[in-house]
Computed example of a mutant assay.
Amino acid sequence: MDRAELADFLRRCRARLEPATVGLTAGARRRTPGLRREEVAQLTGASVDHYTRLEQGRGSRPSRQMLSALARALRLSEDERDHLFHLAGEEPPRARHGPTQHVRPGLLLVLDRLHDAPAQVYSDRGELLAQNAMAVALCGEVEPGENLTRLWFTVPAARRIFPPEDHAAHSLRHVAELRAVFAARPEDAQLAALVKELRASSEEFDALWTEHRVAVRRAETKRFLHPVVGLLELGCEVLLTADRGQRLVIHTATPGTETYERLRLLRVVGLQNFGPVAGPA
């Protein structure tokens, strides 16, 4: 681990970012350009002291999870992310026969601009890669890299943000989407391992898998049962990256509807009145 070079790289990456670039308000007048250390710490979920030590070249070796969080927070390109990992003495993450899980800075910029709409970025395997504040308020905070199909079929609490009568349709959609990706990338070891795990651990998944349904997510209407603002019927738009390996999913409400007003209320309420939901969207 090269502490001095790592510290310098973090400082320079932080200095080139403006608060608005990462979805933060500028606030009081700033004496120096870029983000403050406490803002980077907030974006990564680390303590201010831990991040400050990294920038001062005296911190402990950051974990791979922390490095990935820093790459997202500082809007690093794939080359810059790899450089960050090398400076920390770690091998950069490599996709095994599948698209990278590193979200491009441009896609994160779009995500940050969606202040009034819940939005999340997924891999085509179903891993959550990033979510904005409204998505956290709607669905709860999910650990980056967590597979939402695995959550759906193995964690009962993941379903509580959807009306019970909609669960069967969601289950079928999860399996049908995974089927389509599995056929397109039979050499993907991670995908094969996921399917094997879920067939062994979930009778529901196994039964649906044997039906051999195939579908790709497109625009649809979804219902969410939020514990504070109630039922929301949201339009779901899906934007794919060029290689179709990542998708930006945006949930919107029609102005003038009851759901629109409830979504506005959710933006105000945020996470003040309930804990993590950890549900897939």
Rank of each mutant, 00 (worst) to 15 (best):
L87F: 04
A88P: 00
A88H: 01
A88V: 02
P92T: 11
P92S: 08
R94H: 12
R94L: 08
R96N: 09
R96W: 04
P99L: 09
P99A: 09
Q101G: 11
Q101F: 04
H102G: 05
V103M: 03
G106C: 06
L107V: 15
L109T: 15
L111M: 10
L111C: 10
D112F: 01
D112V: 03
D112E: 15
R113D: 13
R113F: 06
L114M: 15
L114W: 02
H115Q: 15
D116F: 12
D116I: 09
A117G: 05
P118Y: 04
A119L: 07
Q120G: 02
Q120N: 11
Y122G: 01
Y122W: 14
S123A: 14
S123L: 13
D124F: 07
D124Q: 14
G126T: 10
E127L: 02
E127H: 09
L128M: 13
L128E: 01
L129F: 07
A130N: 08
Q131C: 08
Q131P: 00
Q131A: 15
N132W: 01
A133G: 03
A135E: 02
V136W: 00
A137D: 07
C139H: 08
G140L: 11
G140V: 10
E141Y: 10
E143H: 12
E143F: 10
E143G: 03
P144I: 14
G145S: 13
N147A: 10
L148R: 09
L148I: 10
T149L: 12
T149D: 08
